[in-house]
Design a protein around this nucleic acid. Structure first.
Length: 427
RNA sequence: GUGGGUGUAGCUCAGCUGGUAGAGCACUGGGUUGUGGUCCCAGGUGUCGCGGGUUCAAGUCCCGUCACUCACCCCA
């Protein structure tokens, strides 16, 4: 009997796991520098929360949810997206009763029952932010900028930002009917005709050429925004210009959740194959009210960690620290081995990443392990050195080696590692 | 849910029209019994995804099945 990871899931293992950590931290850094607090919510919620929040017409709710009954007969669902759960938590814990807007960030897995392919998995991780309780267009711009800034810090250069406004409950219904009238006159297959009735805007970003060819004269939402939505959209774009953010207006950009209104955006990367979206988000005024909370608007995003890493790979970037430690201790002989245990403790307590060879490896093998660990320094400690209360400290980059009194080793290495680090990562 | 491609060593893969299973990398040991990275030598691994069929003989051909993968759909 042997086992493998469930279909559509994968393990994050070395050496790639170091990049995973680094990208996760990089995506989270801009929010942390911008007044966002960390939140964590359950990975499963009441099924009804997602049905109401995400929307009954969405594919996510209709065919992609991992739903099950627990032993108490409750219908629960592994969260397919992050926003609904965070809003539920904000309402339940009363976070909105303080100063507004509430600004939070989070990271964690989402689950959708999909057919896996490149960049699409049944479990994927997103870093997200939600801001609740303000309809200031400057906040829309800030949220977008956070993602742009994260991409910039990582070093990604081939990310495109697509921007649209979906209107609001005042102006969208009229546009929706206009669009439906147009779409009903086209030659479409049965599935698509059904979509025209359920979610007509989704037809606009159909990938098939024969569909797109018929859409050239389709009415566009941006031509039918109400005064307030148009003003909001213009202001968001003005702020983005001020921030030096580049974007492409895409009036056909539609997103998968029903809750989006006004601002919507998506980050796409052209080096990823079919699943090119590495993140997206938008404004969701009205969502909190539909899940039983006060009528506070909000704007947020989800950035796909998995796909961002694919983008990093596609651009040939190296991120993260591949070295496991800075100092590798090589003990020779039984007495030296005993002394190594406390030496390592002292190094680690002093904040020096350090390791040693276990299992009685020979000197040669241990030195080889030191090399592979990525350590900058090796400490060779033999019984011969121990008698003189010294250790041999070797600079593995230059090959220089010198004897250092044992009681000075930790202090000397702390300094040496610091020097090494600033040399390798200036600024 | 629907289509295409691929399953051979830990990893990447070779194996032409059927004839006794291979390379590189990695790993371990040695050359150097107190010194890594380069070099040289030695060493191990295989239910050839699984089941069935054709054949004197199947990694190779046929059928089925499972898994992986890419794409549609949809999304991060």
């Amino acid at each position: 009997m042997s086992f493998q990871a469930p279909k559509g899931t994968y393990d994050i293992v070395p050496p790639a796991s170091s990049a995973w950590l680094a990208v996760r931290e990089a995506l989270a850094l801009p929010p942390r520098l911008s007044g966002y607090d960390y939140v964590e919510t359950p990975m499963f919620e009441d099924t009804a929360l997602f049905v109401r929040g995400v929307g009954e017409s969405t594919d996510v709710v209709n065919k992609e949810m991992y739903t099950f009954d627990d032993r108490g007969g409750r219908s629960l669902t592994l969260r397919p997206e992050g926003t609904a759960g965070v809003l539920r938590a904000v309402v339940e814990r009363g976070l909105h009763r303080g100063q507004l807007p509430v600004k939070v960030w989070y990271v964690g897995p989402n689950f959708r029952y999909e057919q896996p392919q490149s960049g699409r998995y049944r479990q994927h991780t997103q870093v997200g932010v939600e801001t609740i309780g303000s309809d200031d267009p400057a906040l829309d711009a800030e949220v977008i900028w956070l993602a742009v800034e994260a991409h910039r810090r990582i070093g990604l250069t081939k990310v495109r930002l697509l921007l649209n406004s979906l209107g609001c409950r005042d102006c969208r219904p009229a546009y929706r009917e206009l669009l439906q009238d147009f779409l009903r006159g086209l030659d479409l297959d049965e599935d698509t005709r059904r979509r025209v009735e359920i979610n007509p805007m989704r037809v606009l970003d159909d990938k098939r050429a024969e569909v797109q060819a018929q859409l050239t004269n389709a009415p566009l939402i941006t031509d039918h925004l109400c005064g307030a939505c148009k003003e909001h959209h213009d202001e968001v774009r003005a702020y983005l210009s001020d921030l030096g953010v580049h974007w492409e207006d895409n009036p056909r950009l539609v997103r998968g959740m029903d809750y989006y209104v006004r601002t919507t955006f998506e980050f796409v990367h052209d080096g990823l194959g079919a699943q090119s979206s590495i993140g997206g988000g938008g404004r969701y005024d009205g969502l909190m009210a539909t899940i039983g909370g006060p009528d506070l608007g909000g704007v947020g995003f989800g950035l796909g960690l998995d796909r961002t890493i694919l983008a990093v790979e596609a651009e040939g970037l190296t991120v993260g620290d591949r070295s496991r430690c800075d100092v590798y201790v090589v003990p020779l002989g039984a007495a030296a081995r005993r002394r190594t245990v406390t030496l390592l403790r002292d190094l680690r307590q002093a904040g020096v990443r350090s390791d040693t060879a276990y299992g009685g490896q020979g000197l040669k093998g241990a030195m080889k392990a030191a090399d592979r660990s990525g350590a900058a320094f090796a400490v060779v400690l033999g019984d011969r050195d121990l008698e003189q209360q010294t250790a041999q400290v070797k600079d593995l980059r230059s090959g220089d080696q010198q004897a250092v009194p044992l009681d000075e080793v930790v202090q000397r290495l702390v300094q040496a590692v610091q020097t090494q680090t600033t040399k390798e990562n200036p600024g």
